[in-house]
Design a protein around this nucleic acid. Structure first.
Lengths: 158, 158
DNA sequence: CTGATATCATTTGCATACGAATGAATTTGA
DNA sequence: TCAAATTCATTCGTATGCAAATGATATCAG
């Protein structure tokens, strides 16, 4: 790969390649997937330092319910990007803490309607300002201009 | 917030705010954490479609071992951004499939050394080209210039 | 109208991910 | 030197996250 010219340093390169194989120049830390995973981990850690008793998925469920009101469990999952199995666990745990309540759909008996309880509404309204701080801290390494660019490009990938 | 002028539409706005509270303008889908989570999900899905029998963390462990050679389980975890409990599970599963092998450190009896088996080396060398395709597909929505910008900014956040 | 499809929810199984607690081994510092 | 602090690995508990299978209900097509 790129063996267009032969200099003294290329001999060393040849030795290294002979030792480690030609895939030696693959570096995990440069791969978008690996960096994406780390950036996500950092965000979750920042989130936890601000909001200790709720996870990001739980927060997402409450925030979305606050935004759109009662909806089916499945529809909620679609809106917050969770598959059916995952959203069930999240709702079960919020239900156990009396932050949401569920009820059967009158007409379509397959559907499980989910809604905020008063306690859940109080909680999410109290937490949304903290969420803004979390976003700010997550993006702190970037300038305002970089942030705008980053969010635009990130959205393209999501 | 921003109630500087009073037009006809502001009456409607007041009604909406009275109904939903002043935090009505918080939208989950604009938050960096939520988009980050979705982008990561998309990448994992692309990864799985190319490499079905290995997860991204398992791949990361093999790729790092291939890059640096034998190392301790803990050190490996640091290099691939996994805490001790997580890396243990990953290594256990790779060990069960004979892709890595572990041994005791001669001097420091606390350490567990991890290394690729021949089978593991063969596997990772075969998979690295696929990983390049995965990266490409993940970044496909961006132009080359956007990709460079995105990776630079993402690295700042990770 | 009814059989084929599709949708909604649940369950199971597996794989991260991390906090906290524990135990063994090593290093440090007074 | 030896007690305190640190490091390495393990275990436990909890929480996503997803594939696949299942059952109940609803919709569609002929």
């Amino acid at each position: 790969m790129g063996r267009l010219e032969m200099s003294g340093e290329d001999n060393l390169l040849r030795l290294v390649e002979a030792e480690d194989g030609d895939e030696n120049n693959y570096h995990l830390q440069d791969q978008v997937g690996f960096i994406l995973r780390k950036a996500h981990q950092r965000h979750v850690s920042i989130f936890a330092s601000h909001i200790g008793d709720l996870t990001p998925p739980q927060f997402a469920a409450l925030a979305k319910l606050h935004d759109i009101g009662e909806t089916s469990q499945n529809q909620l999952g679609t809106l917050i990007a969770m598959d059916a199995a995952t959203v069930k666990g999240v709702i079960d745990r919020l239900k156990a803490r009396d932050l949401v309540e569920v009820s059967k759909h009158e007409v379509d008996k397959r559907r499980l309607l989910v809604n905020l309880t008063p306690k859940g509404r109080e909680a999410i309204e109290r937490l949304i300002p903290l969420a803004r701080a979390i976003t700010e801290e997550t993006l702190a390494p970037l300038t305002a201009k970089e942030t705008a660019t980053f969010l635009r490009l990130l959205a393209k990938l999501a």
